[in-house]
Structures are given as structure tokens and as C-alpha cells.
Nucleic acid binder design. Structure first.
Lengths: 209, 209, 209, 209
DNA sequence: AATGAATGAGAGTTCATTCAT
DNA sequence: AATGAATGAACTCTCATTCAT
């Protein structure tokens, strides 16, 4: 079924994917209406079900699609080689943010999936997604080439790293929250990044020698 | 319409509210079935629509109800008098947790509302809720009687406080996430609190003299 | 669900049952459209599903209904006390025919069920129906009080009875076939019965002393 | 349209016919899916509708095809020359059975048509089929060269013949019913034919001198 | 005040048929 | 001659809401 979809011209595929992503993101799986999707994609009802076995088939296709995007457009850009932990977190945040900006529909779709519907996905997806998230976090925290000598001697490096991680994550999620609400222009966004860098500076003075 | 509902004997009101809260929490607004609600509340279909104009009316009523509970059962217990910032955050977390335990239906209803359906609420509700959350955070941070002399001299108190706040919030949200998933018994919960206290200890050694 | 249906005024129940019976009889289970049923019964789409859980629920209800009719309106009238086998078969045919005439919709519904859809029914129904049919046939053939002395000495009674049974059944099924096709008035029907009686007479002269 | 179909190489025609016959036999007209048919026939959707105006066109074509088979493979083998009526019926039954075995798809298709969908066919088909069946029966009964002198004197030959015919038809239809249900191996089938012959023997002793 | 029978719009899905290629 | 992408009407079923009682 999906074969026939992937044989479509890219443009038409994209239109359908964008329509579906945004409606699923908005309403969640159950309340997303296939009627609305075909309307937004400007195809007929029958056509959607010609491409995808059923609503669930479309949904899973989109999850796969989104996971691929997140991997190719975000995860591959994470740089685990930096031994400076704060620098590494900072790079990561910026890579994540770039992906947010470039694939807002993918991101909001995936957020909805993760927050609201993860538990009702088939186990294979739960594992796949769980692994992806765990793996990133683990690599971020555990990669042994972290330069522990950067940390002040009075702090245990893993405890310091934990606090740094929570702080940056918290900071970042407030940041994206603000972006979402206020639809900030890029100019304002500059300012926010400056503030973020300042925040990282503070963390440095707190935890680093 | 709501007048007639509030004239009901408390017991019956509570039964309806509890039924509706738990079903909305479980399913979200759209997928909550009024049939299931009246069944759980042991009233007739007509009765529900006699008390509330429509499903949305019931939903908004419950939001108001839940906000009142959260205010009376959690927010009033926040102690802004403690001048030790970490202590204050700790008290707050514990107060929040107590409310979680005592009003699980209210809490899970409100979580669902906040995470999944906030954006589709009328602006008035969005503001109301936004204000409530902002206000708490602001009070937590800004109340000037914070004992700034506790902080190490090399840190700006407000910057230190910000990091502490983000770290504790992050820690706490991971904690409640774990609670949700694993349905922990109280015994296990003890252990988690010990770990939390240890975490606070670390924060103290980092930021306090 | 069925409770609410059976609380309806008899007239309305009958209208729905008649509509559903005739459409299921005509089209078989799968091709019978609930749309057409509600149209014929002059009720709304929702109402049918208010009374019956789903299409299958309605179908099974009708089978039960039909089996009850066939039992009360046909089977109880079978007289196994007559020891004259041909007479017994004759009585049976006439009882069956009377039920055909009085409950044509029930009969054609049940025919469709038996011929076309029996194997896809739940086992419980298959057994129920199978038993009903076997039982009637067995009682008809085996009831030991058959007056074997009526048969000519040169024939084995059971072999004679078998031929008689097949002949009468065949005759009768041709008869009802004709009735179906030609929508005969009662007057013509008289004539057919005369012919039937003549046929039985022939059987008598062949097999009886 | 059918012209183009009949210009196809025989092999391809057969493949399509066999696919369609078996699916119509299995599911009946309405529930037979043209998708399944083209899949089984290994042709494309468009091709089917290029050869046949529409689903109904295909169906009617198959009825014609099947009627031709039944005529060429069964009816021409009926031997009306035997003057022994019982022998003639016996031959007929065996010819019919041979055709059952050799063209099971044709037979089960035609059974489905006759039992379930006859009444919804156009009148022309109903007549055609009705005539075919009547005609066979009439020839069987009326062909004047029946050796009337075989019958016992006390029976009217035509009345005796009628009973014999009904008995054999009934016997045979029970037989094929059993075959259908139990998917009998040939070995078991032998036994059934022995029983059939015994049955004919009984008929002989009853009606013949 | 309280009931529950009745409604109809809209949900996901199937399928014979068309038509550009 | 042959394809298969595309269609839309019809399918079964759900559900918030109304209203006579």
C-alpha cells in the first residue's frame, strides 16, 4: 500500500504528509478526522485509503517519517566529541532548536505522539522511540571522554553534570515554550540565544574551574 | 444551569464531578463519552444536560473546580516565609506532592488539560491558568526576603536561584513521571524522597556557603 | 440494549422486525443495508443502533425471534400421535404450510439463514438450529408408535417410510416453489391441496395394505 | 467488449474465468470483490473492465459460460433411450455427479446463482434457466418410450414414475449435501454409491414387477 | 426535576468504475 | 491493449444533544 504512495511525485506526497502531520499534531490520533486530512491535502477520501490501508497505517507511516527526520536532521548533528560537557549540551540544544525551526510540523506531531499517545502505540514503536530517547541522553551523559578535570574539585563530576543537564533542559524547554506562544521573529530570537549563552556562562563559573 | 447543579446535595454533586473528572482525565475532552459519564455518575442522560448546557459547559465547570482545588489544597500551603531558597523549593515540592496524592483525579484531569488541550481552551482560560502558574513561579523566585547571604559570594544570588529552580523542577518532574509509570508503593516512595533530599544536599554544597 | 427495544409499543417493534426480516431475507446478512432497514422501518439511523448493539445484534435477535415463531406456530402443531405414517407426514406438511402462509417473512428470512449463512453463525446457533431440524425429522421417522402393520408385508417398513418421506418432502418443496413464484390466491391453493391429497392417496395404495 | 475478451488466448481467458467463477461461487455476486478477482487472475483492474462492461457483465458472461458447460458436459450425456425408468434416473444421477466432480467451480458457481441469486437476475435469465431445468425434468418423465410394462399393474405408471423421481431426487440431494459437508475421499464415496444402488433396488421391488 | 427514546451529522472504510497514460 | 491512480457513493456505527413525558 505504501509502495504506491512512495511512487507519487514528491510534491503530492509532501502535501499529504504536511496535511496529516498538522492535523494529527493538533487533534491527536483519535480526534484527527480523515475527512479533514483529505480536505487539507486536496485529495479524495478514497485516495487516502488507496495509499494507506487505514488511519492507523497513515499514522504509523508518519511516525516512521518523523523519526527519520529527527534522526537525519537533528540526531546526526549531535556532536559527542566535545569533551567540554557544557559545550556539548549547548551544541545539542542548538542542533535541536534548528530542527524545531526547520520542521515545526514534524516536531509538533512528534510531541503530541510522545506526550499523549506513546503508551497506546505497538510495543515495537515504544521500544524504538524509547531507545532513541534513552540513547541520546545516555550518550550525552556517559560518553567517558568528558573532560572531568574541567569541574571544580569540590564537586563530584556526575552530580555536577546532572544539575547542569536538568538546568539546561529546563531552560531550553522554557525557551521553546516562549517561542511557541509568541511566534517570535528571528531578530528577537537572536536576543534569546544571547541570553542562553549567558546562562551557560553562569553554569561555567559555577561548576568549572 | 449551573445554579441548579450547585443546589444539589453535595454528595450527588461530588459523584458527578468525580465521574466526569476521571473520564475526562482518562480520555481527553473529545473522547470522553457523556454516556460513560452519566453511567459512572449513575444519573440519566437528560439530567446531565439539565445541569450543564452542554459537554463544554461541564468541562469548563470542571476546570474551574480543579483550579479552585489546586489553589485551596496546594497553593495556599506554599510557604514563602522561609528565607532559605532551597528549603522553600523543597517545601513547595512536598506540598505539591501532597496535593498529588490527595487529589489524584483533580491532578490527572488538570494535567491532561494543561498538556493536551490548553491551546484549544478559550483565551480567558488560557490567561487564567497562565497567570496562576506564572504567579506561583514569580513569588517563588522574587519574594525579596530570600536570604541572599546564604549563597556563596562568587555567585549572583538570582542566577544561582534560577539554576536551583530549574534543577529542582526538572528533578521533580522526572520523579512524578517515574511515579506515574511504576505505580510505586509508599515504601519505594520513601526511598525516592531520600534521594530527593540528597539531591537538595548537593545543591546546597554547590551554591551555599 | 434489547431491553429498550422490547419496551417499545408492539406496533413499532413489529414494523422494525418486519422491515429487517424482509431485507435480510432478500439480501442476506452482508448485503442487507441498515440504511435500507431504517428507511423501511421509518426510524432514524441512530435509533436502530440505540435498540441493537450493531447489525449482528439485530440479526441474531431476528434469528431468535424467528426460531420462536417457528416453534410456536409450526412445531407445536406437529402431531406425533397419529400412528399412520402418511397421515402424520400429511399433517406435518399442512402445519408447515399454514406457518408459511401466516409468516411468510419469517419463513423466507429463516430459509436464507439456513441455506446461505448457517455456517457463519456462532456455534451455539448452529447447534440450536441443527438440533431443531434433526429433532423434528427424527421424531417424524422414529417415533416407535408408527403402525407398521399398515405397510404391505413385502416392504420393509423403514425403507418404505424413507421413500414416502422423500417423496412427500420433494412434492412439498415443489409445491411451495410454485406458490412462491406465482403468488397464488387461496382459491387456486385449494386446488393444489386437492392434488396433494391425491398424491398421498397414491402413496397409500403403493405402500399400505 | 466481450469480443475483445474472446479474442484472447484461451489460456488467459480460462485463468480469468476460473478466478471469477471461484470467487463469485464463494462470496456471491455482491460480496465478490473485483479486486480479488483481478488479483487471482493476475490482470490489472483496468483490464477487467476493458473486457467486460462492468461487474454485472462479467457475471452474466459467467452464467452463460456455466450454462454452456452444464449442457455440454452433463445434459448431452443424459441417456433418454433407456426405457427402464429407474435405470434412466440412475444414469442421469451418475452423469450429473460426474459433472460435479469434473467441474466443481462451475457447479458451485451455478449452485450459488440458483439458490441465492436467481430472483435478482433479469427475467431473460430466469426463463432460460427455468426452461433448462424444466426441460430436463420433462424429458426425463415424459419421453414416451418408457417401458410401462415394467411397472406393477396396480400402479399407474406416471404416478409411480413421479414418486420414483421425487424419491431419487431427494435421495441425491441429501447425498450431495453430505459430500459437500464432509469432503469425502473417493473411498468413502464408493460406499455411498453402493447405498444409492441399494436404494434403487428397493424402488425396483416396490414399483416394478 | 428528571428521564431516556430519538435524532442526524460525521466518523472510518470499501469498492465498482473511470480515465489519462 | 493494458494499466493502476483516483474517485465518491454507500457502508456500519458513535455520539452530543433535544424534547415529550
Amino acid at each position: 500500500m505504501i509502495d504506491s504512495f512512495e511512487k507519487l511525485e514528491q510534491e503530492k506526497q509532501d502535501k499529504i504528509i504536511r496535511a496529516a502531520l498538522s492535523i494529527f499534531a493538533d487533534k491527536g490520533y483519535k480526534d484527527a478526522s480523515t475527512n479533514k486530512i483529505v480536505e487539507a491535502a486536496e485529495i479524495s477520501k478514497g485516495t487516502l485509503f488507496y495509499y494507506f490501508k487505514n488511519k492507523k497505517g497513515l499514522y504509523y507511516y508518519l511516525i516512521d517519517y518523523a523519526l527519520e527526520i529527527i534522526q537525519n536532521e537533528y540526531m546526526v548533528y549531535i556532536d559527542y566529541t566535545t569533551t567540554d560537557f557544557i559545550q556539548r549540551m549547548s551544541n545539542n540544544s542548538k542542533a535541536k532548536y534548528r530542527y524545531y525551526q526547520e520542521h515545526p510540523e514534524v516536531n509538533s506531531f512528534l510531541s503530541t505522539v510522545l506526550y499523549s499517545e506513546l503508551t497506546s502505540l505497538p510495543d515495537s514503536y515504544q521500544e524504538k522511540i524509547g531507545f532513541l530517547m534513552e540513547d541520546t541522553k545516555n550518550k550525552m551523559m556517559d560518553t567517558p571522554i568528558i573532560a572531568e578535570e574541567l569541574f571544580k574539585d569540590e564537586h563530584k563530576p556526575e552530580e555536577a553534570a546532572r544539575i547542569i543537564q536538568l538546568a539546561i533542559e529546563g531552560y531550553f524547554s522554557e525557551l521553546t515554550e516562549k517561542f511557541k506562544q509568541s511566534d517570535l521573529s528571528n531578530e528577537d530570537s537572536e536576543e534569546l540565544w544571547t541570553d542562553f549563552d549567558h546562562f551557560l556562562g553562569t553554569l561555567r563559573t559555577v561548576f568549572y574551574k
